[in-house]
């Protein structure tokens, strides 16, 4: 559990660790190294279609985890915020804006949209938050489908590619993977850091008991809206990466299917920790790509539905919850063995 006083080691072992480094463990370094050497071993398909895609959908899932796991707000509009950023990158790119302005513009406008969505939905809770954010997502889908002058209706935009910066072709598998890994890694560390700030703590307390937070003197609505804003930045960045990876964006990219996919992969991985959505994204992408080897393409939803049901039935906290159960089971077994040896 993230706490305001988390430290890496005992005070004796690490006396002057900077505040922002607290909570970093050795296995974080191992995972980071594995991720860095992964594209050197993997083929282009595994690097981009599986690797980068998982990281990007995981990032959008991370924005939902921030809202739902820490804030207790299940929002179905995170992919819509990402999609808006993706559309804006395509539109600004066609208008030949400079790269930096295009990126800053797309992510900040997506963030403004997220704050508005948060402002609308912050006074609701539970199923009403889900309904309002779902309605916003559906409305955005029909907006881009029917609006020709700005969103190019059902054709959307194709041929969207990352700008060439420093003479690197960022569309090539290796650079694109490292770009994604770097950006997503920073976002992930940021969420870890945020969870241990007063804001992150207050957000979790708002989830547990909003009335008590209000009576302690905190502004509950402000914390909820701010969380939507932060999640909007993350989703917006994810949307930019997603449109670069796919090379195109159309109403189908922001339809009800992908909107639900984000919810599924986030819950599948687990909402208890920021790593959950990434685990969920890897499982989701692997099934999406390889389930067709076993069954018809049309049956994919049946498979993902079945896997989702099985995991959630056995562990309401997703794969993270399974891992927690396994750890406590192993601890019990070793305790039993010790008793047997007596």
């Amino acid at each position: 559990m993230a706490s305001i006083t988390d430290k890496t080691e005992d005070k004796k072992a690490a006396p002057v660790l900077p505040v922002w480094l607290r909570g970093v463990r050795w296995y974080h370094a191992v995972v980071a190294v594995l991720l860095v050497i992964y594209p050197l071993i993997a083929t282009g398909f595994w690097t981009v279609q599986i690797g980068a895609q998982s990281l990007i959908l995981g990032l959008i899932g991370l924005s939902l985890m921030l809202l739902a796991g820490y804030g207790g707000m299940v929002s179905l509009s995170q992919l819509t915020v990402a999609g808006l950023a993706g559309y804006l990158v395509a539109i600004f790119g066609n208008a030949e804006w400079p790269a930096w302005l295009m990126l800053v513009g797309a992510v900040s406008l997506a963030t403004v949209a997220a704050v508005l969505i948060g402002w609308i939905s912050a006074r609701t809770s539970g199923i009403y938050t889900i309904m309002i954010t779902l309605a916003i997502s559906v409305a955005f889908y029909y907006l881009v489908l029917q609006n020709d002058p700005i969103f190019n209706s059902f054709n959307g935009f194709s041929g969207v590619r990352p700008p060439e910066v420093f003479g690197v072709d960022w569309r090539a598998p290796l650079p694109f993977f490292y770009l994604t890994l770097g950006v997503v890694g920073l976002c992930y560390l940021f969420v870890l850091y945020l969870s241990r700030t007063p804001f992150g703590l207050a957000l979790q307390a708002v989830r547990d008991n909003p009335r008590r937070m209000a009576s302690l003197g905190f502004n509950v609505t402000a914390h909820r809206v701010a969380a939507h804003g932060v999640a909007g930045v993350l989703a917006g960045i994810g949307g930019v990466l997603l449109v670069w990876q796919n090379g195109q964006i159309s109403p189908g990219s922001v339809g009800i299917g992908p909107v639900i996919d984000i919810l599924i992969l986030t819950v599948l991985g687990g909402l208890a920790h920021p790593v959950g959505p990434f685990i969920g994204a890897v499982i989701f992408i692997l099934m999406e790509n390889f389930a067709i080897d076993l069954i018809d393409r049309e049956r994919f939803n049946t498979v993902i539905g079945a896997v989702f049901l099985v995991i959630v039935l056995f562990s309401p906290d997703g794969v993270l919850g399974l891992w927690g159960k396994l750890k406590s089971w192993l601890a019990r077994q070793s305790a039993r063995n010790r008793v047997d040896q007596w």
Binding site: M1, S3, I4, T5, V19, W20, Y193, L194, R196, T197, P198, F199, L201, A202, Q204, A205, R207, D208, N209, R212, M213, L216, G217, F218, N219, A222, H223, A226
Partner: peptide, 27 residues
């Protein structure tokens, strides 16, 4: 109480609530 948080974090939030600065994204 805030059931998902530690004992200390509950106390910390109570102490922060009566202070003048309640919103911060810095540790």
């Amino acid at each position: 109480l805030f059931k998902g948080l530690t004992v200390f974090d509950n106390l910390y939030l109570a102490a922060r609530g009566v202070g003048s600065k309640r919103f911060s994204m810095r540790r």
